[in-house]
Design a protein around this nucleic acid. Structure first.
Length: 386
DNA sequence: ACGACCGGGGTCTGCCATCGCG
DNA sequence: CGCGATGGCAGACCCCGGTCGT
C-alpha cells in the first residue's frame, strides 16, 4: 500500500513539510475522497500495525483535515490513532452521514473521540442496529453521538453490548426505561455487562441487608428512578448510603423506605458533596434551633434538600423568609425548595402584588406548574379589581 | 372547580488512572 | 513501552401535571 511508503527514512522530511501538505489537502475535492472511501471500505482491523513511533499517517491526516476534524484536539486525546496504518475515517464519515449526521457533527465526533475511525463498517452497522433496538429513529442516536461520542465508540465489544441489553431487559426494565437510560446516561451501554451486574447485585444486597423482601424489584425500581446509578461506582453509592444511615441515625426500615421512595436521587452525588450538604444542613438546622429529629424528619420527607448546595440553599431560604414565609412553613412544605431562586423570587413578587396571604392560604402555591400559577394569579387579580 | 398530594421527567460529559497485552 | 479497553471521578436541581377528596 502506498500509505506504507511514508514509513521509511523520509518521515522527518514529511514532518517538516507537514503543514504545507495539510494546506494542500484542503483543496482536494470531496468527490475524490468519496471514491477513496470505496477503496478503503474493508481495510481495517483492530490489530493493524502502527507506524514507527512518532510518525503519523499522512493520508489519514489529510482525510481528517478534509473532514474538518480538529486534528490538534484529536492528537491530544488519542495520539496513537493518528499513527495507525489502516483506519476507516472516510467510511465512518459516510456511515454517519447516511444516518443523518451533518458534516459538522461528524467532524466534532472524530475530533473528540478519534478512536471512532478504527471501527470497521461491519462493527458500526451492528452496533448501530443494537442501539436502534432501543431507539425509534437514527436521529436520536445521532444526537447522542454528538453529545457523547465516547459512549458509542469506547467499547469494541458488540457481543457484550448485546448481552448487556438483554440483561437490562431481564431486570424488568421496559422499553421506555431503556430509552431513558440510554438517552440520559448513554455510558450505561458501554459499561461491561459485568460492571452493570455488579451494581445490580450490590443494590439487591443492600435491599436484603435492610430487611427488604423483594431485592430484584428494589434494584429495578431504584434504577428506573435514577438512571445515573449504573454509571456510578458501587463504592460511591455504598458510602453515600452509609453516610445517610449514620448521620441521620436511620433504622433499617427507615433507610429502605427512603431509598425506595424519594431518596434515590441523592445517592449519585459525590461522597464529599453529600457529606458537605448533610453537614451544612445540620449546622443550619441547629442554628435555627431545631433538633436532630427535626432534621431527620425533613430529610425523610424531602431528601432532595441534600441535593442543594449550602450556598444555594441559604439564598433560597433567605429569599423565602424575606418574602414573608416562615421557616415553619418551609419545613412543612419543603418541596418549594425544588424551585429555582429566580422562579421563587418572581412568584413572591407577583403574589405580593395581588396581596396573597401566606398565613391564611399556605405556601403550596409556590409548588405548582407555571401554567397553574399564572391562572391563579390572573384569577386573583381579577377578583381584587372588581 | 379546586387545590393538596404525589410521582414523574429532563438532563449529563470529558477527562484521567489503571490494567493486560504485544 | 505504548496501545486499547475500561472504571471512576467532579459537578452541586428544576419543573410539570394527573388524580382524588372535597
Amino acid at each position: 500500500m502506498e500509505k506504507m511508503a511514508s514509513v521509511s527514512g523520509i518521515r522527518t522530511l514529511i514532518r517538516i513539510h507537514h503543514s504545507l501538505v495539510l494546506q494542500k489537502s484542503f483543496r482536494r475535492s470531496l468527490l475524490q475522497l468519496a471514491s477513496t472511501c470505496i477503496t478503503w471500505r474493508h481495510c481495517s482491523g483492530s490489530n493493524d500495525p502502527l507506524l514507527p513511533s512518532d510518525t503519523e499517517n499522512k493520508s489519514l491526516l489529510e482525510n481528517l483535515y478534509v473532514l474538518g476534524v480538529d486534528v490538534k484536539m484529536a492528537r491530544q486525546r488519542q495520539p496513537g490513532v493518528l499513527r495507525k496504518s489502516f483506519t476507516n475515517e472516510m467510511c465512518l464519515a459516510q456511515f454517519l452521514q447516511e444516518k443523518g449526521a451533518s458534516c459538522k457533527v461528524i467532524a466534532s465526533i472524530v475530533s473528540r473521540y478519534p478512536r471512532a475511525i478504527t471501527r470497521s463498517l461491519d462493527h458500526l452497522e451492528e452496533r448501530w442496529q443494537l442501539w436502534r433496538n432501543v431507539f425509534n429513529t437514527d436521529a436520536e442516536i445521532v444526537s447522542i453521538l454528538d453529545r457523547s461520542p465516547e459512549s458509542f465508540f469506547r467499547s469494541s465489544d458488540n457481543e457484550d453490548l448485546k448481552k448487556n441489553i438483554a440483561f437490562l431487559i431481564s431486570l424488568g426494565l421496559n422499553s421506555k426505561d431503556l430509552r431513558r437510560l440510554l438517552t440520559t446516561a448513554p455510558r450505561t451501554f458501554s459499561n461491561t455487562l459485568e460492571l452493570n451486574k455488579q451494581m445490580v447485585e450490590f443494590l439487591e444486597d443492600i435491599c436484603l441487608e435492610l430487611g427488604g423482601k423483594n431485592p430484584e424489584q428494589f434494584a429495578t425500581s431504584i434504577i428506573s428512578k435514577n438512571v445515573y446509578l449504573l454509571i456510578k461506582s458501587t463504592k460511591r453509592i455504598g458510602t453515600n448510603i452509609n453516610n445517610l444511615k449514620t448521620s441521620l441515625m436511620l433504622s433499617d426500615a427507615e433507610l429502605l423506605a427512603l431509598l425506595q421512595g424519594k431518596g434515590a436521587d441523592i445517592l449519585v452525588l459525590s461522597n464529599d458533596c453529600l457529606k458537605r450538604n448533610i453537614h451544612s444542613l445540620e449546622e443550619k438546622m441547629s442554628l435555627l434551633g431545631f433538633k436532630e429529629s427535626d432534621m431527620k424528619k425533613l430529610v425523610l420527607n424531602y431528601p432532595n434538600i441534600l441535593y442543594i448546595g449550602a450556598a444555594t440553599l441559604n439564598s433560597k431560604l433567605d429569599c423565602l423568609l424575606k418574602g414573608g414565609i416562615t421557616i415553619k412553613q418551609i419545613l412543612e412544605k419543603p418541596k418549594v425548595l425544588d424551585y429555582s431562586i429566580q422562579n421563587i423570587t418572581e412568584r413572591l413578587k407577583e403574589l405580593q402584588r395581588v396581596g396573597y396571604d401566606f398565613e391564611k392560604n399556605g405556601i403550596n402555591i409556590l409548588d405548582s406548574s407555571k401554567k397553574r400559577f399564572v391562572a391563579k394569579i390572573e384569577k386573583l387579580s381579577g377578583v381584587s379589581e372588581e
